[in-house]
Design a binder for these strands. Sequence first.
DNA 1: CTTTTTGTCAAGCGATGACTTCAGTATCGT
DNA 2: ACGATACTGAAGTCATCGCTTGACAAAAAG
Lengths: 120, 120
Amino acid sequence: MGATAGPARAELGELMQSPEFDRLFKALGDPTRRAILGRLSLGPSSVSALAAPLDITVTAVGQHLQVLEESRLVRTAKAGRVRTCRIDQAGFSALERWVGWHRRAWETHLDRLGDVLDED
Amino acid sequence: MGATAGPARAELGELMQSPEFDRLFKALGDPTRRAILGRLSLGPSSVSALAAPLDITVTAVGQHLQVLEESRLVRTAKAGRVRTCRIDQAGFSALERWVGWHRRAWETHLDRLGDVLDED
DNA sequence: CTTTTTGTCAAGCGATGACTTCAGTATCGT
DNA sequence: ACGATACTGAAGTCATCGCTTGACAAAAAG
């Protein structure tokens, strides 16, 4: 990638703080929602099927799903009376972009202090 | 795949729900803490230097730093009266492992439904 | 048509969390 | 020694969040 398009380095940091990432990380902050993501990673599921192993109400799962959908981690579609939920790639891609930017950032500005003898 | 090392597929999902990831994602859930990470990605900083552009108290930053340190996203060291903070690789590696597992999971169990005509 | 299943809406409760103030400790500069 | 700087700890406030209950709507099953 050339230095042609895209904002400057400093502005990229600001980009990372957009409301998009705000929703994304807030969604990932709850363990129940991550459990839902873990379940959906194995394949699509209905709302009540998601609620069963979680020991919470179907209503609660519905609220979680709304958050997950707004952050593009889950996509749902209602057919008849059953809503089928599946993983949405968009959220995960955004997450990977976030981690990638930070890793690249502090690997470039590597403190030349020599005291960082990290593992792996 | 031999049954030699590593837990079974189903158990991996459980691993992802360990207290380690609990703390990690809870730490990432707050926008102020992510702003701190963005700042530290550009190089080490003191506590008060972190507080300046954030419009919050030094005490608040100290509390955030404790959370970030417990989740292995930041490492700090006190020299004299100033505490120097820098990025800790461990937390980011854990995050990449989490995303990687999920991506691999739903790319394997790809719904053979044909209705997933995703972008990129 | 009646019943059961599956999900949605509205309101409310309890707990957690982010931030503040105030007081205290230790280090640096003069 | 004195004052300024850099941080730490305890306690309290206020908003947000996860979850529940209860009432409701609509599709499938009998």
